[in-house]
Each structure stands twice: as C-alpha cells, then as structure tokens.
Amino acid sequence: MEDVILELSGLSTHFFTDQGEIPAVDKVSFRVHKGEVVGVVGESGSGKSVTSLSILQLIPSPPGKIVSGSIRYKGEDLAKATEKRMKRIRGNEISMIFQEPMTSLNPVFTIGNQMREAIRIHQKISKKAATEKAIQMLKLVGIPRAEDIVNEYPHQLSGGMRQRVMIAMAMSSDPSLLIADEPTTALDVTIQAQILDLMKKINKEEHTSILLITHDLGVVADICDRVVVMYAGQVVEKGTTREILKDPQHPYTQGLIRSLPKLHGREEKLYSIPGTVARPKKDRVGCRFAPRCEFAFERCFKENPELYQLGDGRESRCFLHTEKKGERLEDATTNT
C-alpha cells in the first residue's frame, strides 16, 4: 500500500542477561497507515513496550538488542539506521510519550526550557521564537495560562497537565507518527478521557498516525482503528477494532475481552485468565499461551503455531483454526 507510514516485519528484540537470552519481542510484524490509530494490546510482559521502544532504538543497550527484522518508516529501515540518523527521526518524524507523566519530565528544568529544547533540536529558530512556539503548542493541547506554565516546574502541575505537556512537546515538530506508550494508565478516569480526546483531535486535525500501546481494551475501543494483540513477545491476533472486540479469534483475546467488567448482567466473579504471562524463553516449544489456554490440546505443547490468515487482513496464532476451522472457538464466544 502507498500510504504505509510504519511497517514492522519480523522484528525481534532480545535481551542478553545473566539468565540467558530473552526474546522479549519475537518476529513481530504489523503496519501503521497514514492517519490511522493502531493499538497494541497485551498484559504486562507481553513485549508491547519493548516493541515501541525498539522503533526509536530506545531500548537500554546493553542488554537489549534488535537481532533481526526491519522497521520501515516511509521505506527507510530504522533498525539499520545510524545513531546520527535516529536523532533526526526522534522527536521530529516520530515522537513518543510515556506512561508516567509524573516522572517523564525532568524535575529540575522549567516546562519552557524542556519544550524549547525539543523545538530547537529540530528547528533552527531563536530562543524567543521557540518560547512562542512552546506557548502556542501548550494552548493547542488545552493548557490554560500557557504563558505562566512555561516558567513553572513539572512538580507544580498535575498528572493530566504533565501528560498534556508531554503531548505538546511530542507534537512540537509536527511528527508523522506519535507513539503513545500507555499514555493514560497513570491518570484518573476523567483525565484519561480528556487525554484520549486530545489524541483523537490530534489524529483528526494534524493527520498524525498514532501507535497506541495499552493494556486497556476500553481505550482501544475508544480510539483505535486497528488492533494488534501481543502475548509473550509475539503477535497473537490482528484485525480491526470492531472485529476484534465483536468476534475475537484467539483464546487469549477472548480471555481479555471476557475479563472486562460489564455494566449489564452482574456476574458473581469477574473472569480472569488463570496464571501469568510466561517469561519468553529461547527455544521454547509449543504455543506460548498453551499453559493458560482452556482449549489447549496435545499439538499446542509440541509445535509453534503460525499466524493464520483468516481473510480481510485478520490473523490469529492458534492451531484451532486448522484443526476444527474454529468451531470450538465460536462455541466459546457465544458462551460469554
């Protein structure tokens, strides 16, 4: 497709630790088109944050390293880009905001100082012009009395305000892609909604593509066009938000959706997927979700499932799609 902004193919990021090589991200592939919001969903430890940090080569190295695959940004492979080139990309072409607005801004410099820096790294303008640009950006993200805020320190602002500052800073060089790593997780629910609305507005008005990393399917439903579900470093399901939420194919996605609290129909106990995400290990045999999967059968523990194409760009990594053409899966969905 012409309008692909970002294309990950077979991206593998491994951590080389004392306990051995850990494939935190294992052959991950997906695309982000122009003006699109793509969600990457998964529990803690599913490799979604490492994937996003890999795109900008921000994984702590050592121990982390991109071992194979490519990250094509507008055709250019960022996995092979030099640090010098990456500096031009970061904050300019691709911006990033993080989960912890409380700690993501440097406590000892003013908001204005940090914003000016972000602006002047990529744009050759005077300090005064940069300050004006900073104020303009702060106003754009809905910060009141922006003229005063530029002279204040991060600790003088609330969490929601700080996340707005982060977004203003990220947007100051008009990037083509914004990577948001759990941007609302640390915020109150009402503030979450405001930040999501702001991101929607940016997506709509600035035509910035957004790659949203989250564990919250509610956030996904609210803002994403397409969803990539990750489990233990692998993509397990891909599809449009509507399809994934209405008709999940992979048992893991089904579990995620079943564990959402519902307003109607009071259940005695909220469903939870038994167990925790297995630590990715090299040379693991069998499906990574198998130990927690209620449909697992013999083959799941012996072979590694592929991503099966289910038509219309839907993909799911489960043997059930070959064995019984998803018969049991459909049963399970209707039961929930």
């Binding site: 970061r90 904050g91 406590p107 410099f109 820096e117 972000a118 790294i121």
Partner: peptide, 26 residues
C-alpha cells in the same frame, strides 16, 4: 535510568546534552 532521561532521548537530543544537562543537574 530515570524516565525523564528516556524522554530527553526520545526528543532527539544528543548524548552530550542528555548527560551534561539533564542527568548532571539531577
């Protein structure tokens, strides 16, 4: 190791600015 250093790097700053401005003052 702190988050704000990651932010500075995500902005596209060079290592010198990261270390001698942001990290050193803290």
């Amino acid at each position: 190791k702190s988050d704000y250093i990651r932010t500075v790097r995500a902005k596209g700053s060079g290592q010198f600015l990261v270390i001698y401005k942001h990290a050193l003052k803290n």
